[in-house]
Structure formats: C-alpha cells, structure tokens
Simulated assay, not measured.
Amino acid sequence: MDTGLTVLVGIVIFVGIVGIVVPILPGAILSLAAILVWALLDRSATAWIVLAAAVVLIGASQVVKYVVPERRLRDSGVPRRSMIVGVLLGIVGFFVIPVVGMFVGFPLGVYLSEAQRLRTHAEAWTSTKHALKATGLSILIEFIGTSLAAAVWLIAVLFLV
C-alpha cells in the first residue's frame, strides 16, 4: 500500500482520537472507518485481523462506556432525566458559545435539573459532580478502546505489513 495513504489513514485515526476528547467529531467511528479503509486497500490477512481487533476493541468500549457510568449514576441517585437535560443544554451551548459551549451547557443543564428536583444547592452540586465524573469515565473508556485499536493498527503497519 502507498505510504502516503498509510500516513493519511494514521492522521484520520489521530483526528478520531482527538474527537473523543474534544467531542466535536464521532471519534471512535472515524478511527474505525479509517482502519476499515486501510484494510480494504491493503487486502492482506494481517489487515483483516487488525480490522477485526479494532472492531472488537472499539465495539467493546462503546458498550462499556454506557454500562459502567450508567451504573455509577444509578448508584449515586442521579436520574437519567438530569443527564438528558444536561446533554440537551450542552448541544444548545455548543451552538451558542462556540468551542466551549458544550462544556458549559452540560453541567449547567444537569445542575438546573437536579436543583429543581432536589431543592438544595449542595445536593444538586453533588449530583452534578457525579454526572461529570461519569461523563469523564465514559470519555476515558472510549479513548482507551480507540487508542488500543490505533496501537494495534500502528504495530501492524510498522512491523507486519
């Protein structure tokens, strides 16, 4: 396979990983799509094995990133409704305040929903901190899964193909 195309695939994988941390792009999907394109162009057995490993790693991280934080939120008493309000306000914030609006809107939405539900600042703030920790954990899980898939791809490119 052409070196230029391999470098381009690597750049797209990297942009996907950045998109996980700065959630503007669908990072894991972008990285997986880049590995898929690489496998389709390379057509070697190694490429298909790398693609299969990437699907497993990214797929597992997509499942775990919802299951583990959801369980922690449920255990801490934060209702799903507050998370939905946070996400909706985060989306609005994304368009109202470019770049940082999502990071302002999400916690504000969770806090407002929890303040309405719990009626005290202290309890609402505690719930908001639980929601932020769960969101951070979700991002970390997706980041690890996609980074592992990228590492498998990089090892294959450097040493096997």
Rank of each mutant, 00 (worst) to 15 (best):
A47R: 12
I35R: 05
R43C: 02
D42Y: 06
G19M: 05
I13P: 00
G10H: 03
F14Q: 01
G10N: 05
A34E: 12
L32R: 08
I29K: 03
L40C: 07
G19Y: 13
V37W: 08
V18A: 15
V18W: 09
F14A: 15
W38E: 04
G16P: 08
I20Y: 02
V21N: 09
I17C: 09
L32D: 14
G19V: 08
I29Y: 09
A39P: 03
P26E: 08
G19A: 08
A39T: 10
L30S: 12
V37M: 07
D42Q: 06
F14P: 00
P26Q: 05
S31Y: 03
P23F: 01
V12I: 12
I11A: 13
T46R: 09
I29H: 05
G27F: 10
A45D: 13
G19K: 09
P26H: 08
L36A: 14
I29T: 15
V12E: 03
V9G: 02
F14E: 02
L36Q: 01
A34P: 10
V37L: 14
I20A: 11
P26K: 07
I35F: 12
G10D: 02
V9L: 07
V12C: 04
P23V: 04
A28Q: 11
D42P: 00
I35V: 14
A45H: 05
S44C: 07
F14G: 10
G16N: 10
I35S: 07
L25I: 15
I13S: 09
S44Q: 02
L32K: 06
A33M: 13
V22E: 03
G16Q: 03
D42T: 14
W38D: 05
A33R: 05
L32V: 10
S31M: 06
A33F: 14
L8D: 00
S31K: 05
G27V: 09
P26L: 11
I20R: 04
G27T: 12
I35Y: 11
V22P: 00
P23C: 09
L25A: 11
I29E: 13
I13H: 04
P23Q: 04
A33P: 09
S31T: 02
F14S: 07
L8N: 00
A33I: 12
A33G: 11
P23R: 08
L25M: 14
L8S: 10
I13E: 01
L36G: 07
L30C: 11
L40P: 01
I13V: 15
I20G: 05
D42H: 09
S44V: 01
V9A: 07
V12F: 02
